[in-house]
Write a protein that binds this DNA or RNA. Structure first.
Lengths: 218, 218
DNA sequence: ATATAAAGTTAGATAAGCCTAACAAAATAA
DNA sequence: TTATTTTGTTAGGCTTATCTAACTTTATAT
Protein backbone atom coordinates (compact mmCIF):
# COMPACT_ATOMS: atom_id res chain seq x y z
CA UNK A 1 0.00 0.00 0.00
CA UNK A 2 1.11 3.54 -0.70
CA UNK A 3 2.06 6.01 2.00
CA UNK A 4 0.17 9.29 2.32
CA UNK A 5 3.19 11.06 0.92
CA UNK A 6 3.35 8.82 -2.11
CA UNK A 7 -0.36 9.36 -2.70
CA UNK A 8 0.18 13.11 -2.56
CA UNK A 9 2.94 12.94 -5.15
CA UNK A 10 0.77 10.86 -7.47
CA UNK A 11 -2.13 13.25 -7.08
CA UNK A 12 0.08 16.24 -7.82
CA UNK A 13 1.46 14.50 -10.90
CA UNK A 14 -2.06 13.73 -12.03
CA UNK A 15 -3.11 17.36 -11.77
CA UNK A 16 0.08 18.61 -13.44
CA UNK A 17 -0.29 16.28 -16.39
CA UNK A 18 -4.06 16.35 -16.91
CA UNK A 19 -6.07 17.70 -19.78
CA UNK A 20 -6.87 20.75 -17.68
CA UNK A 21 -3.17 21.54 -17.39
CA UNK A 22 -2.78 21.07 -21.17
CA UNK A 23 0.26 18.88 -20.90
CA UNK A 24 1.15 15.28 -20.41
CA UNK A 25 4.45 15.57 -18.58
CA UNK A 26 6.06 17.68 -15.91
CA UNK A 27 9.44 18.19 -14.23
CA UNK A 28 11.09 17.89 -10.85
CA UNK A 29 10.99 21.60 -10.01
CA UNK A 30 7.37 22.09 -10.92
CA UNK A 31 6.38 19.04 -8.92
CA UNK A 32 8.42 20.21 -5.94
CA UNK A 33 6.83 23.65 -6.09
CA UNK A 34 3.33 22.16 -6.16
CA UNK A 35 4.01 20.09 -3.07
CA UNK A 36 5.97 22.77 -1.23
CA UNK A 37 9.10 20.70 -0.95
CA UNK A 38 12.61 21.21 -2.33
CA UNK A 39 13.56 19.76 -5.73
CA UNK A 40 16.00 17.41 -4.01
CA UNK A 41 13.15 15.89 -2.04
CA UNK A 42 10.97 15.47 -5.10
CA UNK A 43 13.89 13.87 -6.89
CA UNK A 44 14.21 11.20 -4.20
CA UNK A 45 10.53 10.42 -4.48
CA UNK A 46 10.66 10.26 -8.27
CA UNK A 47 13.25 7.50 -8.01
CA UNK A 48 11.05 5.65 -5.58
CA UNK A 49 7.91 6.00 -7.70
CA UNK A 50 9.78 4.86 -10.77
CA UNK A 51 11.03 1.83 -8.83
CA UNK A 52 7.40 1.02 -8.06
CA UNK A 53 6.48 1.47 -11.73
CA UNK A 54 4.05 4.28 -10.98
CA UNK A 55 5.73 6.85 -13.22
CA UNK A 56 7.70 7.09 -16.43
CA UNK A 57 10.96 8.80 -15.63
CA UNK A 58 14.57 8.88 -16.73
CA UNK A 59 17.34 10.93 -15.21
CA UNK A 60 17.09 14.53 -16.49
CA UNK A 61 13.92 13.56 -18.33
CA UNK A 62 10.29 14.52 -18.04
CA UNK A 63 7.86 12.78 -15.70
CA UNK A 64 4.46 11.22 -16.38
CA UNK A 65 2.21 8.65 -14.74
CA UNK A 66 2.08 5.03 -15.85
CA UNK A 67 -1.33 3.41 -16.23
CA UNK A 68 -0.93 1.96 -12.75
CA UNK A 69 0.14 5.31 -11.29
CA UNK A 70 -2.75 7.09 -12.95
CA UNK A 71 -5.21 4.57 -11.62
CA UNK A 72 -4.01 5.09 -8.08
CA UNK A 73 -3.93 8.87 -8.49
CA UNK A 74 -7.53 8.87 -9.72
CA UNK A 75 -8.57 6.80 -6.73
CA UNK A 76 -7.18 9.52 -4.45
CA UNK A 77 -8.93 12.22 -6.46
CA UNK A 78 -12.14 10.23 -6.26
CA UNK A 79 -11.91 10.00 -2.50
CA UNK A 80 -11.03 13.66 -2.20
CA UNK A 81 -14.05 14.76 -4.20
CA UNK A 82 -16.46 12.42 -2.47
CA UNK A 83 -15.33 13.71 0.92
CA UNK A 84 -15.69 17.31 -0.27
CA UNK A 85 -19.20 16.52 -1.34
CA UNK A 86 -19.94 14.94 2.03
CA UNK A 87 -18.65 17.96 3.92
CA UNK A 88 -20.58 20.37 1.74
CA UNK A 89 -23.86 18.47 1.43
CA UNK A 90 -24.10 16.89 4.86
CA UNK A 91 -21.96 18.83 7.29
CA UNK A 92 -22.71 22.40 6.29
CA UNK A 93 -19.17 23.21 5.23
CA UNK A 94 -18.77 26.14 2.86
CA UNK A 95 -17.18 26.10 -0.56
CA UNK A 96 -13.86 27.34 0.70
CA UNK A 97 -13.63 25.07 3.76
CA UNK A 98 -13.98 21.64 2.19
CA UNK A 99 -10.64 21.32 0.45
CA UNK A 100 -8.34 21.41 3.45
CA UNK A 101 -10.21 18.74 5.40
CA UNK A 102 -10.62 16.55 2.32
CA UNK A 103 -6.83 16.64 1.95
CA UNK A 104 -6.70 14.60 5.13
CA UNK A 105 -9.73 12.39 4.57
CA UNK A 106 -8.61 11.31 1.10
CA UNK A 107 -5.90 9.13 2.66
CA UNK A 108 -8.19 6.96 4.78
CA UNK A 109 -7.93 3.40 3.57
CA UNK A 110 -11.17 1.44 3.41
CA UNK A 111 -12.77 0.35 0.15
CA UNK A 112 -16.07 -0.25 1.91
CA UNK A 113 -16.02 3.24 3.37
CA UNK A 114 -15.77 4.89 -0.05
CA UNK A 115 -18.34 2.59 -1.59
CA UNK A 116 -20.82 3.32 1.16
CA UNK A 117 -20.03 7.01 1.27
CA UNK A 118 -20.72 7.30 -2.43
CA UNK A 119 -24.00 5.45 -2.02
CA UNK A 120 -24.93 7.60 0.98
CA UNK A 121 -24.33 10.74 -1.07
CA UNK A 122 -26.50 9.40 -3.89
CA UNK A 123 -23.72 8.76 -6.42
CA UNK A 124 -22.91 12.42 -7.05
CA UNK A 125 -21.33 13.35 -10.39
CA UNK A 126 -19.70 16.60 -9.36
CA UNK A 127 -18.00 17.89 -6.24
CA UNK A 128 -18.77 21.30 -4.71
CA UNK A 129 -16.25 22.99 -7.03
CA UNK A 130 -17.88 21.53 -10.11
CA UNK A 131 -15.19 18.93 -10.77
CA UNK A 132 -16.19 15.48 -12.00
CA UNK A 133 -16.03 12.68 -9.44
CA UNK A 134 -14.40 9.58 -10.97
CA UNK A 135 -16.51 6.43 -10.61
CA UNK A 136 -15.45 3.27 -8.79
CA UNK A 137 -13.75 1.99 -11.94
CA UNK A 138 -11.60 5.10 -12.13
CA UNK A 139 -13.37 6.45 -15.19
CA UNK A 140 -13.92 10.16 -15.30
CA UNK A 141 -15.87 12.10 -17.85
CA UNK A 142 -13.86 14.58 -19.82
CA UNK A 143 -15.52 17.95 -19.38
CA UNK A 144 -15.66 20.38 -22.27
CA UNK A 145 -15.17 23.73 -20.66
CA UNK A 146 -13.17 26.87 -21.15
CA UNK A 147 -11.96 29.54 -18.80
CA UNK A 148 -13.78 32.81 -18.31
CA UNK A 149 -10.74 34.55 -19.80
CA UNK A 150 -11.47 32.87 -23.14
CA UNK A 151 -15.08 34.05 -23.40
CA UNK A 152 -15.86 36.70 -26.03
CA UNK A 153 -17.14 40.12 -24.96
CA UNK A 154 -20.92 40.26 -24.84
CA UNK A 155 -21.27 36.48 -24.49
CA UNK A 156 -23.23 35.04 -21.56
CA UNK A 157 -21.88 31.91 -19.91
CA UNK A 158 -22.34 29.74 -16.83
CA UNK A 159 -19.80 28.95 -14.13
CA UNK A 160 -19.34 25.18 -13.95
CA UNK A 161 -16.14 24.84 -11.93
CA UNK A 162 -13.17 26.63 -10.44
CA UNK A 163 -9.55 25.71 -11.06
CA UNK A 164 -7.93 26.99 -7.86
CA UNK A 165 -9.40 25.46 -4.70
CA UNK A 166 -7.69 27.70 -2.17
CA UNK A 167 -9.84 29.36 0.47
CA UNK A 168 -8.58 32.82 -0.45
CA UNK A 169 -9.58 32.45 -4.08
CA UNK A 170 -12.96 30.91 -3.29
CA UNK A 171 -13.80 33.64 -0.82
CA UNK A 172 -13.00 36.17 -3.51
CA UNK A 173 -15.25 34.30 -5.95
CA UNK A 174 -18.11 34.48 -3.46
CA UNK A 175 -17.50 38.17 -2.90
CA UNK A 176 -17.94 38.85 -6.60
CA UNK A 177 -21.33 37.16 -6.29
CA UNK A 178 -20.37 33.95 -8.03
CA UNK A 179 -21.17 30.34 -7.22
CA UNK A 180 -21.68 27.09 -9.11
CA UNK A 181 -24.12 27.63 -12.01
CA UNK A 182 -23.93 31.42 -11.77
CA UNK A 183 -24.72 33.14 -15.04
CA UNK A 184 -22.02 35.56 -16.11
CA UNK A 185 -21.99 38.16 -18.87
CA UNK A 186 -18.69 39.53 -20.11
CA UNK A 187 -19.21 43.28 -20.39
CA UNK A 188 -15.78 44.33 -21.63
CA UNK A 189 -12.15 43.33 -21.70
CA UNK A 190 -8.93 45.39 -21.63
CA UNK A 191 -6.68 44.40 -24.47
CA UNK A 192 -3.63 45.48 -22.47
CA UNK A 193 -3.74 43.11 -19.48
CA UNK A 194 -6.83 41.00 -19.94
CA UNK A 195 -8.72 42.65 -17.07
CA UNK A 196 -12.43 42.23 -17.67
CA UNK A 197 -15.69 43.63 -16.46
CA UNK A 198 -18.34 41.02 -15.78
CA UNK A 199 -21.98 41.13 -14.76
CA UNK A 200 -23.49 38.65 -12.31
CA UNK A 201 -27.14 39.04 -11.31
CA UNK A 202 -27.05 42.63 -12.44
CA UNK A 203 -23.98 43.35 -10.35
CA UNK A 204 -20.87 44.46 -12.20
CA UNK A 205 -17.33 43.69 -11.11
CA UNK A 206 -13.83 44.16 -12.47
CA UNK A 207 -11.71 41.02 -12.37
CA UNK A 208 -8.10 40.33 -13.37
CA UNK A 209 -7.02 37.96 -16.10
CA UNK A 210 -5.57 35.66 -13.46
CA UNK A 211 -8.97 35.51 -11.77
CA UNK A 212 -10.72 34.79 -15.08
CA UNK A 213 -8.27 32.00 -15.87
CA UNK A 214 -9.37 30.19 -12.73
CA UNK A 215 -13.06 30.17 -13.55
CA UNK A 216 -14.39 27.42 -15.83
CA UNK A 217 -17.53 28.14 -17.84
CA UNK A 218 -19.71 26.70 -20.57
CA UNK B 1 -0.09 19.58 17.47
CA UNK B 2 0.38 15.92 18.32
CA UNK B 3 1.45 13.30 15.79
CA UNK B 4 -0.81 10.33 15.10
CA UNK B 5 1.61 8.17 16.99
CA UNK B 6 1.56 10.40 20.03
CA UNK B 7 -2.24 10.38 19.94
CA UNK B 8 -2.22 6.61 19.84
CA UNK B 9 0.04 6.42 22.88
CA UNK B 10 -2.21 8.80 24.82
CA UNK B 11 -5.29 6.84 23.88
CA UNK B 12 -3.68 3.57 24.94
CA UNK B 13 -2.64 5.14 28.25
CA UNK B 14 -6.17 6.39 28.75
CA UNK B 15 -7.64 2.94 28.25
CA UNK B 16 -5.01 1.29 30.43
CA UNK B 17 -5.57 3.69 33.32
CA UNK B 18 -9.32 4.15 33.18
CA UNK B 19 -11.98 3.13 35.64
CA UNK B 20 -12.80 0.21 33.36
CA UNK B 21 -9.27 -1.10 33.72
CA UNK B 22 -9.52 -0.65 37.50
CA UNK B 23 -6.19 1.07 37.84
CA UNK B 24 -4.72 4.49 37.55
CA UNK B 25 -1.23 3.70 36.32
CA UNK B 26 0.51 1.37 33.93
CA UNK B 27 4.02 0.39 32.88
CA UNK B 28 6.30 0.43 29.85
CA UNK B 29 5.81 -3.24 28.96
CA UNK B 30 2.05 -3.21 29.21
CA UNK B 31 1.87 -0.07 27.11
CA UNK B 32 4.22 -1.54 24.53
CA UNK B 33 2.16 -4.73 24.34
CA UNK B 34 -1.05 -2.75 23.80
CA UNK B 35 0.46 -0.83 20.91
CA UNK B 36 2.31 -3.78 19.41
CA UNK B 37 5.70 -2.16 19.73
CA UNK B 38 8.79 -3.16 21.70
CA UNK B 39 9.32 -1.82 25.23
CA UNK B 40 12.35 0.13 24.01
CA UNK B 41 10.13 2.01 21.59
CA UNK B 42 7.50 2.78 24.20
CA UNK B 43 10.25 3.95 26.52
CA UNK B 44 11.43 6.53 24.00
CA UNK B 45 7.91 7.83 23.60
CA UNK B 46 7.37 8.02 27.36
CA UNK B 47 10.34 10.37 27.62
CA UNK B 48 8.90 12.50 24.85
CA UNK B 49 5.41 12.62 26.38
CA UNK B 50 6.84 13.51 29.76
CA UNK B 51 8.82 16.31 28.12
CA UNK B 52 5.53 17.60 26.73
CA UNK B 53 3.92 17.35 30.16
CA UNK B 54 1.30 14.90 28.95
CA UNK B 55 2.18 12.12 31.40
CA UNK B 56 3.48 11.64 34.91
CA UNK B 57 6.56 9.47 34.67
CA UNK B 58 9.90 8.91 36.37
CA UNK B 59 12.59 6.48 35.32
CA UNK B 60 11.63 2.97 36.50
CA UNK B 61 8.34 4.36 37.78
CA UNK B 62 4.71 3.92 36.82
CA UNK B 63 2.99 5.97 34.13
CA UNK B 64 -0.23 8.00 34.23
CA UNK B 65 -1.77 10.84 32.26
CA UNK B 66 -1.60 14.46 33.39
CA UNK B 67 -4.76 16.55 33.17
CA UNK B 68 -3.54 17.88 29.85
CA UNK B 69 -2.71 14.41 28.55
CA UNK B 70 -6.06 13.06 29.63
CA UNK B 71 -7.88 15.90 27.92
CA UNK B 72 -6.16 15.18 24.65
CA UNK B 73 -6.69 11.43 25.01
CA UNK B 74 -10.40 11.95 25.57
CA UNK B 75 -10.60 14.12 22.48
CA UNK B 76 -9.22 11.22 20.44
CA UNK B 77 -11.66 8.79 22.09
CA UNK B 78 -14.48 11.21 21.36
CA UNK B 79 -13.56 11.37 17.70
CA UNK B 80 -13.15 7.61 17.50
CA UNK B 81 -16.60 6.97 18.94
CA UNK B 82 -18.32 9.60 16.84
CA UNK B 83 -16.82 8.12 13.69
CA UNK B 84 -17.88 4.62 14.75
CA UNK B 85 -21.38 5.91 15.20
CA UNK B 86 -21.30 7.53 11.77
CA UNK B 87 -20.12 4.34 10.10
CA UNK B 88 -22.71 2.24 11.89
CA UNK B 89 -25.70 4.59 11.67
CA UNK B 90 -25.14 6.13 8.26
CA UNK B 91 -22.90 3.88 6.21
CA UNK B 92 -24.28 0.44 7.02
CA UNK B 93 -21.12 -0.82 8.68
CA UNK B 94 -21.53 -3.74 11.04
CA UNK B 95 -20.55 -3.88 14.67
CA UNK B 96 -17.27 -5.57 13.99
CA UNK B 97 -16.21 -3.39 11.03
CA UNK B 98 -16.38 0.08 12.56
CA UNK B 99 -13.38 -0.05 14.87
CA UNK B 100 -10.63 -0.48 12.31
CA UNK B 101 -11.74 2.39 10.10
CA UNK B 102 -12.38 4.66 13.10
CA UNK B 103 -8.76 4.04 14.11
CA UNK B 104 -7.80 5.99 11.03
CA UNK B 105 -10.55 8.61 11.08
CA UNK B 106 -9.91 9.57 14.70
CA UNK B 107 -6.68 11.33 13.67
CA UNK B 108 -8.25 13.77 11.22
CA UNK B 109 -7.73 17.28 12.50
CA UNK B 110 -10.66 19.67 12.10
CA UNK B 111 -12.63 21.00 15.06
CA UNK B 112 -15.46 22.04 12.75
CA UNK B 113 -15.64 18.55 11.28
CA UNK B 114 -16.20 16.94 14.66
CA UNK B 115 -18.66 19.58 15.77
CA UNK B 116 -20.70 19.16 12.61
CA UNK B 117 -20.43 15.40 12.61
CA UNK B 118 -21.77 15.25 16.13
CA UNK B 119 -24.64 17.53 15.18
CA UNK B 120 -25.34 15.49 12.04
CA UNK B 121 -25.54 12.33 14.12
CA UNK B 122 -27.94 13.97 16.55
CA UNK B 123 -25.59 14.27 19.53
CA UNK B 124 -25.41 10.53 20.23
CA UNK B 125 -24.59 9.44 23.78
CA UNK B 126 -23.25 5.98 23.01
CA UNK B 127 -21.23 4.44 20.22
CA UNK B 128 -22.18 1.14 18.53
CA UNK B 129 -20.35 -0.84 21.21
CA UNK B 130 -22.27 0.84 24.00
CA UNK B 131 -19.42 3.07 25.15
CA UNK B 132 -20.15 6.62 26.23
CA UNK B 133 -19.16 9.34 23.77
CA UNK B 134 -17.41 12.21 25.60
CA UNK B 135 -18.97 15.62 24.91
CA UNK B 136 -17.17 18.58 23.37
CA UNK B 137 -15.89 19.66 26.77
CA UNK B 138 -14.26 16.28 27.29
CA UNK B 139 -16.71 15.22 29.97
CA UNK B 140 -17.77 11.62 29.93
CA UNK B 141 -20.39 10.01 32.07
CA UNK B 142 -19.12 7.29 34.32
CA UNK B 143 -21.11 4.19 33.56
CA UNK B 144 -22.05 1.84 36.33
CA UNK B 145 -21.73 -1.57 34.83
CA UNK B 146 -20.26 -4.91 35.62
CA UNK B 147 -19.01 -7.75 33.49
CA UNK B 148 -21.13 -10.76 32.65
CA UNK B 149 -18.67 -12.86 34.62
CA UNK B 150 -19.73 -11.03 37.79
CA UNK B 151 -23.45 -11.73 37.41
CA UNK B 152 -25.02 -14.21 39.86
CA UNK B 153 -26.51 -17.45 38.55
CA UNK B 154 -30.20 -17.10 37.76
CA UNK B 155 -29.98 -13.32 37.38
CA UNK B 156 -31.21 -11.69 34.19
CA UNK B 157 -29.20 -8.78 32.82
CA UNK B 158 -28.85 -6.60 29.73
CA UNK B 159 -25.80 -6.18 27.52
CA UNK B 160 -24.82 -2.52 27.46
CA UNK B 161 -21.31 -2.64 26.05
CA UNK B 162 -18.39 -4.82 25.07
CA UNK B 163 -14.84 -4.38 26.31
CA UNK B 164 -12.87 -5.89 23.44
CA UNK B 165 -13.56 -4.22 20.09
CA UNK B 166 -11.74 -6.69 17.85
CA UNK B 167 -13.60 -8.09 14.87
CA UNK B 168 -12.99 -11.68 15.96
CA UNK B 169 -14.53 -11.13 19.37
CA UNK B 170 -17.49 -9.17 18.02
CA UNK B 171 -18.24 -11.80 15.41
CA UNK B 172 -18.27 -14.39 18.18
CA UNK B 173 -20.63 -12.20 20.21
CA UNK B 174 -23.02 -12.02 17.26
CA UNK B 175 -22.79 -15.77 16.77
CA UNK B 176 -23.96 -16.33 20.34
CA UNK B 177 -26.99 -14.23 19.46
CA UNK B 178 -25.92 -11.15 21.37
CA UNK B 179 -26.12 -7.48 20.48
CA UNK B 180 -26.51 -4.16 22.29
CA UNK B 181 -29.46 -4.34 24.71
CA UNK B 182 -29.72 -8.13 24.46
CA UNK B 183 -31.30 -9.69 27.52
CA UNK B 184 -29.14 -12.42 29.03
CA UNK B 185 -29.91 -14.96 31.72
CA UNK B 186 -27.10 -16.73 33.50
CA UNK B 187 -28.16 -20.38 33.65
CA UNK B 188 -25.15 -21.85 35.44
CA UNK B 189 -21.51 -21.32 36.17
CA UNK B 190 -18.63 -23.78 36.65
CA UNK B 191 -16.81 -23.05 39.86
CA UNK B 192 -13.62 -24.56 38.40
CA UNK B 193 -12.88 -22.26 35.47
CA UNK B 194 -15.72 -19.74 35.40
CA UNK B 195 -17.25 -21.18 32.24
CA UNK B 196 -20.93 -20.26 32.18
CA UNK B 197 -24.09 -21.24 30.40
CA UNK B 198 -26.23 -18.31 29.28
CA UNK B 199 -29.58 -17.96 27.64
CA UNK B 200 -30.31 -15.34 24.99
CA UNK B 201 -33.75 -15.23 23.36
CA UNK B 202 -34.34 -18.79 24.46
CA UNK B 203 -31.07 -19.95 22.91
CA UNK B 204 -28.52 -21.44 25.27
CA UNK B 205 -24.75 -21.16 24.82
CA UNK B 206 -21.66 -22.07 26.78
CA UNK B 207 -19.16 -19.24 27.09
CA UNK B 208 -15.73 -19.01 28.70
CA UNK B 209 -14.84 -16.79 31.60
CA UNK B 210 -12.65 -14.72 29.26
CA UNK B 211 -15.67 -14.15 27.02
CA UNK B 212 -17.85 -13.17 29.98
CA UNK B 213 -15.24 -10.71 31.21
CA UNK B 214 -15.52 -8.82 27.95
CA UNK B 215 -19.28 -8.31 28.12
CA UNK B 216 -20.61 -5.37 30.14
CA UNK B 217 -24.10 -5.65 31.56
CA UNK B 218 -26.50 -3.87 33.89
C1' DA C 1 18.64 -12.73 52.08
C1' DT C 2 20.05 -13.72 48.08
C1' DA C 3 19.21 -15.65 43.47
C1' DT C 4 16.31 -15.52 39.71
C1' DA C 5 12.84 -13.49 36.99
C1' DA C 6 10.44 -9.62 35.31
C1' DA C 7 10.33 -4.96 34.05
C1' DG C 8 12.55 -1.09 32.35
C1' DT C 9 16.49 1.46 30.09
C1' DT C 10 20.30 2.57 26.94
C1' DA C 11 23.03 2.46 22.79
C1' DG C 12 23.32 1.95 18.17
C1' DA C 13 20.91 0.89 13.63
C1' DT C 14 17.35 1.47 9.98
C1' DA C 15 13.75 3.60 6.85
C1' DA C 16 10.91 7.49 5.33
C1' DG C 17 10.70 12.07 4.25
C1' DC C 18 12.63 16.17 4.53
C1' DC C 19 16.63 19.64 4.26
C1' DT C 20 21.16 22.41 2.41
C1' DA C 21 25.09 22.82 -0.37
C1' DA C 22 27.59 21.59 -4.19
C1' DC C 23 27.57 19.97 -8.64
C1' DA C 24 26.02 18.44 -13.55
C1' DA C 25 23.15 18.71 -17.53
C1' DA C 26 20.10 21.02 -20.57
C1' DA C 27 17.99 25.03 -22.37
C1' DT C 28 18.35 29.76 -23.68
C1' DA C 29 20.30 33.99 -25.13
C1' DA C 30 23.95 36.77 -26.77
C1' DT D 1 28.65 28.64 -30.41
C1' DT D 2 29.84 29.80 -26.30
C1' DA D 3 28.22 31.91 -21.91
C1' DT D 4 24.63 32.14 -18.76
C1' DT D 5 20.55 30.71 -16.61
C1' DT D 6 17.45 27.19 -15.44
C1' DT D 7 16.63 22.64 -14.24
C1' DG D 8 17.83 18.50 -12.22
C1' DT D 9 20.95 15.42 -9.34
C1' DT D 10 23.99 13.90 -5.62
C1' DA D 11 25.98 13.67 -1.12
C1' DG D 12 25.51 14.16 3.51
C1' DG D 13 22.45 15.47 7.63
C1' DC D 14 18.27 15.78 10.53
C1' DT D 15 13.91 13.93 12.84
C1' DT D 16 10.44 10.50 13.96
C1' DA D 17 9.32 6.09 14.97
C1' DT D 18 10.76 1.79 14.89
C1' DC D 19 14.04 -2.26 15.89
C1' DT D 20 17.78 -5.56 18.42
C1' DA D 21 21.04 -6.50 21.85
C1' DA D 22 23.03 -5.55 26.03
C1' DC D 23 22.48 -3.82 30.41
C1' DT D 24 20.24 -2.14 35.00
C1' DT D 25 16.80 -1.89 38.39
C1' DT D 26 12.97 -3.71 40.89
C1' DA D 27 10.12 -7.51 42.26
C1' DT D 28 9.49 -12.36 43.48
C1' DA D 29 10.38 -16.72 45.36
C1' DT D 30 12.84 -19.94 47.80
Amino acid sequence: MLSQTEENYLKALFHLTSETANKSETGTNELAATLNVKPATANDMLKKLKEKKLIHYEKYGKVSLTASGKKQAIEVVRKHRLWETFLYDKLEFSWDEVHEVAEQLEHIYSPKLIEQLEKFLGYPEFDPHGDVIPNAKGELKLQVRKTLSQVAVGKPCKLVAVKDNSASFLQYVVKVGLGLSSKIKVVSRQEFDGTMEIEVNGKRSIVSQKFAENIFVV
